Simulated scan of single mutants.
Amino acid sequence: MKKYIAIGVVVIVSLFAFQSCRQGPPIRMAERVNLDLFMGDWYVIANIPTFIEKGAHNAIESYSRKSEYVIDTRFTFNKDSFTGPKKEYNPTGFVVQEDPSNAEWKMQFLWPFKSEFIIVHVDPAYEYTIIGRTKRDYLWIMARKPQIDQRELENLIKIAVDEGYDRQQIQLVPQQLKDQP
């Protein structure tokens, strides 16, 4: 029995380790990310979702500095509808110190495993951002407000597609305006 448990642990560890490895051509990184300006709430406007966020509504990613290169993250959403159960995840982001742009992070949901997290784009006003991965398997297009102009959204999607993402996989994330009836 112990042998099977040990094999199971090795398989799970291997899956996580290989999942976080870079595969594919390099992805563009934002030239320079001011971490203080990047902190705060970001509404997920569109994405290529991970398995935990499929069906997400009102998805919000919130960042706050824990220390110079460690970021506390809170990811919340309603599952499958605006009134669905509230889900919350709290991974920790680690800014790769060898990267002077501050655009490369490692995101840790489960110790000791860390996944690639690349800030592909952030506009000069820190109103819009695109987060991606070299594997082009997941993508997050986010904004400081729950709704954005359609032209701006198309521009952000174009940036993602130009970086090798499949346009057909990008989905809109429903966001409900809280101040409206």
Rank of each mutant, 00 (worst) to 15 (best):
E68Q: 09
Y69Q: 02
V70Y: 05
V70T: 12
I71M: 03
D72A: 07
T73S: 03
F75Q: 00
N78P: 01
N78K: 08
D80M: 11
G84H: 09
K86I: 14
Y89K: 05
Y89M: 11
P91N: 08
T92W: 10
T92S: 03
T92E: 07
G93H: 13
V96F: 14
E98P: 00
D99R: 13
P100R: 11
P100V: 15
P100N: 09
S101N: 10
E104L: 14
E104F: 15
E104Q: 12
W105A: 04
K106L: 14
K106E: 11
M107D: 05
Q108M: 14
F109E: 02
L110N: 03
L110F: 14
P112E: 07
F113Y: 13
S115L: 11
S115T: 11
E116T: 09
I118S: 00
H121G: 00
H121D: 01
D123Y: 11
A125S: 06
Y128F: 14
I130P: 00
G132L: 07
G132Y: 12
T134P: 02
R136G: 02
R136C: 07
D137T: 15
D137S: 11
Y138Q: 04
L139N: 03
L139S: 03
W140N: 01
I141C: 06
R144L: 08
K145M: 08
K145E: 08
P146N: 04
Q147A: 11
I148D: 01
Q150L: 13
R151N: 12
R151T: 15
E152W: 14
E154R: 13
N155G: 04
I157F: 10
A160K: 05
Y165I: 05
R167M: 07
R167E: 05
R167H: 05
R167W: 08
Q168R: 12
Q168W: 14
